[in-house]
Amino acid sequence: MYKYIIRRLLVTIPVIIGVTIVISSIVYMAPGNPARIALGTNADAKAVSNLEQKMGLNEPPHIRYLDWMWGVVQGDLGESIRGGREVTDMISERIVPTLELALVAMVITFIIALPLGVISAVKQYSWADNLSMLFAIFWISMPSFWLGLLLILVFSVRLDLFPISGRTGAIFTLTWLSSLALPAIATGTRRAGLLTRMTRSSMLEVLNEDYIRTARGKGIGERSVIYTHAMKNAMIPIITLIGLQIPLIFSGTVIIETVFSWPGMGRLLVDAVLSRNYPVIQGTVLIYSIIVILSNLFVDITYSYFDPRITYD
């Protein structure tokens, strides 16, 4: 197991390098002069030239990238063009709200999708099955940003039950939960639609296996058959889908954080793109990449829990 984890971590190094090269190339090719944007359109040409030299914009793109990577190896993600703050400090302030939003959104996804998928499979072709599939198709088709705007209109503007935007209160308090509820629901429900369909499909395949019929023939209770025998064996494809959904959840938080003015990394990234703030863009994407890679590693490791035949020796 430990050797497998080490190998996977070593493999992530070229993946992260590849991601940062692609992002850096796109950023460098984007139109607009970051120095001019930072100083304003009326700035003196000499001041713009000095800032370009300080930022290294007069260097070739590959030299800028290598200088940035050397700083990353030393734990330095550079300084923001606007304000001159350390990118590491800016990200450290924003990473916790983003993780809060993503984790709660995933919990909402599981709470909705797993029970609906199991019920839909057990009650195949019933009204419960049809209703669950209608729910799944509806949420798959609903863009998260549009759902977020509808939630704000109904529950914040009309009913005044939740804050319109922002993050308030200490963590795990009712105030914090009320500010987190709408963005987490907007992020989690859309992912629940696809996971519901996958859970149903996987459960139907398992329920038709011989060992399930044998368990029922032995007189084992239906609840035990479903949740002890069938559910555990149906989790492998579900976990695979969860691993694929993790990057989508984090990418979805970029839009949702903007809609709800949530002070996370997604909003920081959007602001950095609009202002051509190269160091912040590169640093934020790097942290996103590391989070997604580690999350998928955790998902792969959980395979062995649900299926003991899977080993990593």
Results as ranks from 00 to 15, higher is better:
149 L>R: 02
56 G>I: 02
67 D>I: 01
44 D>R: 03
134 L>H: 09
30 A>D: 02
42 N>S: 15
81 I>H: 05
163 P>L: 08
133 M>E: 09
149 L>Y: 03
81 I>G: 05
96 V>C: 04
85 R>D: 13
54 K>W: 13
78 G>L: 07
62 H>R: 14
69 M>A: 14
83 G>W: 06
31 P>Y: 12
98 T>N: 00
149 L>M: 09
88 T>F: 07
111 I>T: 14
141 S>V: 04
129 D>Y: 03
126 S>A: 09
88 T>N: 11
145 F>R: 01
118 V>Q: 00
46 K>S: 10
42 N>F: 14
46 K>E: 11
27 V>G: 02
84 G>K: 08
48 V>M: 01
150 L>Q: 10
127 W>H: 00
144 S>R: 08
103 L>S: 15
31 P>M: 12
144 S>L: 07
30 A>K: 05
155 F>R: 04
41 T>N: 14
49 S>C: 12
97 P>T: 12
57 L>M: 07
117 G>Q: 04
102 A>N: 12
146 W>M: 07
87 V>K: 06
99 L>V: 15
152 I>C: 07
82 R>K: 08
96 V>L: 11
102 A>G: 14
116 L>D: 04
61 P>V: 07
103 L>Q: 13
150 L>I: 09
122 V>S: 08
84 G>T: 07
117 G>R: 03
70 W>M: 11
121 A>C: 12
86 E>D: 12
32 G>Q: 15
86 E>F: 06
100 E>F: 10
79 E>P: 01
109 T>M: 04
131 L>S: 12
43 A>P: 00
136 A>G: 06
97 P>A: 13
129 D>L: 04
147 L>M: 11
119 I>Y: 04
54 K>T: 15
87 V>I: 00
49 S>H: 12
41 T>K: 12
82 R>A: 11
90 M>F: 03
71 G>F: 09
43 A>H: 03
122 V>G: 08
59 E>M: 05
106 M>Q: 03
29 M>I: 14
96 V>G: 01
151 L>S: 01
139 W>Q: 05
33 N>E: 03
62 H>S: 15
62 H>E: 13
28 Y>F: 15
114 L>A: 11
132 S>M: 02
109 T>Y: 01
119 I>M: 05
84 G>L: 04
29 M>W: 13
102 A>S: 14
65 Y>T: 02
95 I>K: 10
131 L>A: 15
45 A>L: 13
123 K>D: 10
30 A>C: 08
50 N>S: 11
102 A>I: 10
33 N>I: 12
101 L>V: 13
40 G>F: 06
51 L>W: 00
150 L>R: 07
158 R>W: 15
82 R>T: 09
114 L>D: 11
128 A>T: 09
49 S>D: 14
116 L>R: 04
95 I>Q: 11
98 T>A: 04
153 L>C: 10
104 V>W: 02
92 S>W: 10
98 T>G: 05
121 A>F: 02
147 L>Q: 01
105 A>C: 09
157 V>C: 02
92 S>D: 08
125 Y>P: 06
100 E>G: 09
89 D>C: 00
80 S>C: 07
119 I>F: 05
78 G>I: 00
105 A>Q: 03
62 H>V: 06
124 Q>V: 09
67 D>N: 14
27 V>E: 00
91 I>G: 05
99 L>W: 09
147 L>S: 03
137 I>K: 04
58 N>P: 02
32 G>L: 14
104 V>Q: 04
91 I>T: 07
152 I>G: 01
